[in-house]
């Protein structure tokens, strides 16, 4: 069990936890412990159901009338009309199944998405999930109920990587389906044509959505720290292979990757899209903090 604050978010520590819910809680509780508790916002006034009080529930949400009648503590839960609808878009294409460290990009993305969902639902906002490769694979509409978390997590745990990447096409498709303004969170390695990706993201903005992009990359993807003559075989396209001396092309490779990132970052900046580059070696709290920063 991790004891220091930092180890809450260490991907290597998280990799040892088997349950995604646990991982998400682990991360979020860790983040929240490190922050001043913020004021709860945006809960709805339309009653949905009662549920029995449990420690940790806010006292102001106790139904005092029900206490008077039944002599038991009940909490009033309300549906819909939350302040925010969040669409969590997770890339599950083959390229996400790569790890040089403890977690693959896909695993990192899953934890990140679960943590965000946990956080969003904890703040009584609505969270939905869309997984995609070169097409939309799964789509769960945003809901704000606490029980929805279980469904989201079950869906995430059932996910595996597959297919090719076509982020641009998928984003256009998803954007077309969003009717109400909200927050779109994209978690992907964005190994696609940058312009195509940006085009899809722009459409979200045109429709009045806020967009948060988590560009997940493995450390070795950014630096190419290999040596010796190597035959690189593409994970998504087995026909794509190239033999090279990594040392010899390392500098140029870094330039190419940096250029790709810069294109994405500047493109996002141009359309007021929050862009966050995260390495799978990066502690997850940083990603969550960037979300919370946006939320403020």
């Amino acid at each position: 069990m991790a004891t220091s604050e930092q180890s809450y978010f260490d991907p290597a520590v998280l990799a040892r936890l088997s349950n995604l819910h646990l991982k998400a809680r682990w991360v979020v509780e860790g983040v929240m412990a490190g922050l001043h508790r913020s004021r709860a916002k945006g809960f709805s006034v339309e009653f949905e159901q009662h549920r029995e009080y449990s420690p940790g529930d806010e006292i102001r949400r106790i139904d005092w009338k029900a206490l008077g009648k039944l002599d038991r503590y009940f909490i009033k839960e309300f549906e819909d009309e939350s302040n925010l609808k969040t669409h969590l878009l997770l890339d599950v294409s083959g390229s996400m199944d790569y790890a040089s460290g403890a977690l693959t990009k896909f695993q990192y993305g899953c934890i990140l998405v679960a943590s965000l969902a946990y956080l969003i639902l904890r703040q009584q906002d609505a969270a939905g999930l869309t997984t995609f490769s070169d097409r939309i694979d799964t789509q769960l509409p945003p809901k704000a109920t606490r029980g929805y978390m279980v469904e989201l997590l079950q869906r995430l745990e059932a996910e595996t990587t597959r297919g090719d990447t076509d982020v641009g096409k998928v984003l256009l498709e998803v954007a077309g389906g969003i009717r109400r303004r909200g927050l779109v969170v994209l978690v992907s390695d964005l190994l696609d044509d940058a312009e195509s990706v940006l085009q899809g993201l722009r459409l979200f903005r045109f429709k009045g959505n806020d967009v948060l992009v988590f560009h997940v990359m493995d450390e070795t993807e950014m630096t190419l720290p290999f040596s010796g003559n190597t035959r690189f075989e593409d994970i998504e396209d087995p026909g794509l292979r190239v033999t090279a001396d990594p040392k010899a092309i390392q500098a140029e490779y870094r330039r190419v990757v940096a250029n790709h990132i810069d294109t994405l970052r500047s493109g996002c900046h141009q359309y007021a899209i929050d862009y966050q580059l995260v390495s799978t070696a990066t502690p997850l709290d940083q990603a969550l903090v960037s979300y919370l920063s946006w939320r403020k």
């Binding site: 790569y98 190597t230 075989e233």
Partner: peptide, 28 residues
């Protein structure tokens, strides 16, 4: 012999490797 003894690596960003190699190939 070194050329024959190459490692294999499944890698997601092969297209960047390919671009890089094409750029440096001549000089390299």
């Amino acid at each position: 012999l070194n050329r024959r003894q190459q490692k294999r690596l499944r890698f997601p960003a092969v297209r960047f490797v390919l671009i890089s190699q094409r750029r440096v190939a001549r000089t390299y």
